[in-house]
Simulated assay, not measured.
Amino acid sequence: METGNHSCKTDFTLVGLFQCGHTDTFLFTVITLLFAVALIGNITLVHLIRLDRTLHTPMYFLLSQLSIIDMMYISTTVPKMAANFLSNTKTISFLGCAIQTFVFLTLGGSEALLLGFMSYDRYIAICWPLHYPLLMSRKICCSMVASAWSSSSITALMHIIYIFQLPFCGSKIVNHFFCEVPSLLPLVCEDTSQYEHTVLVSGLVFLLLPFLAILASYARVLVVVFRMGSGKGQSRAVSTCSSHLTVASLFYVTALCTYTQPHSLHSPGRDKVVAVLYSIITPVLNPFIYSLRNKEVMGALRRHL
C-alpha cells in the first residue's frame, strides 16, 4: 500500500521516440510535418462538410466525426512528444499520464467503432438503397456516434481506474513516446496476467469485431457492384474499397498487434513503430483517402475555393 501511495506522487519518465542525434532531428521534423498535414487535412474536411449543403448526408456526417476524432487522436501524443524532445525533458506527471491514457483509449475505441459504422453506411447505400433514408436517418447516425463515444469512454475509464491504482515500482521509466497500457504494465509490481485477459477482450470487441464487419460489408458491396455489370462502376468500386480497406487494415491490424499480444511477446522498439502507424500515420491518411478519391468532396472544394 505504501508503494502504491508513493507511485501516485511520482512522475513517469518517457523514453520517447527520438533522442538527440541528427537522424532523430530529421525524424522529429518529419513527424511534426505529418502532424501539421493531419490537422490541416482534417480541419479542411470538417469545415467543407459543414459549409457545403451537398455534403449534408449521413456518410459525410460520419466522415466529419472521424476527422474530429483524428485531430484529437494525433494531438494526444505528438505535442507532448515534441515538447519533451525540444525541452530535453522526459517527464510526465502521474495525473497527466492517466489523462493521456484515458483520452487515447477513448479516441482509439471511438475511431475503431466509427470506421465500422461507416462501412455499414456504404453497405446500406449500395445493397439496400431504397431503405437508406430509413436505416441511416439523422437520429440513427447521431446514435451511432454517441454509442461509439460513450462505450469507448466508459471502457477507457474502467481500464484507467484499475491500472492507476496498482503499485508502480522501480525507476518508473516508460519505454514509449506516450503513456499506453502495454507500456505501463511492465512497471507494475503485481502480477497482471488476469488483467491482460481483460485487455485482450477489449481489443477483440473494439478492434477485431469492427474490422470483420468492415471486411464483410465491403465484400458484399463488391459482390453487388460486380453483378451490375458496369465496367466503370466495377473499377471505381474496387479502387474505392481497396483504398478504404488499406487504411482500415493499417489501423486495425497494428492496433490488434499491440492490444491482443501477451505481455511477454511485447518489444518496446517494435511497439513504438507500430504505435506510430495507428496513432500518427492513420490520422494523416484518413482525410485524403476519404476525400481526394471522392468526386463530391473535390467538387465542393473547388466550389468553395
Rank of each mutant, 00 (worst) to 15 (best):
E2H: 09
K9A: 11
L17I: 14
F26M: 10
L27K: 13
T29S: 14
L39A: 12
N42C: 06
L45N: 08
R50A: 14
D52T: 06
P58K: 01
F61P: 02
S64L: 05
S64N: 07
M81V: 07
S87R: 00
S93Y: 04
L105V: 02
A112Y: 01
L114G: 02
G116R: 03
F117E: 12
Y120C: 11
Y123I: 03
C127V: 08
W128N: 15
P129V: 06
L130E: 15
Y132D: 11
P133D: 13
P133G: 10
I140P: 01
C141R: 01
C142E: 11
S147C: 13
W149P: 04
S152R: 00
T155I: 11
Y162F: 01
F178A: 09
E180V: 11
E180C: 09
S183F: 07
D191M: 10
D191V: 06
T192Y: 00
S193Q: 13
Y195E: 07
H197N: 10
L208H: 09
P210Y: 04
Y218L: 07
A219C: 12
R227M: 01
G231M: 04
C241H: 10
L245K: 00
A248I: 05
F251L: 14
Q261A: 15
H263M: 05
P268A: 13
G269N: 12
V273F: 05
Y278K: 06
T282N: 12
G299D: 09
L305M: 15
L305Q: 08
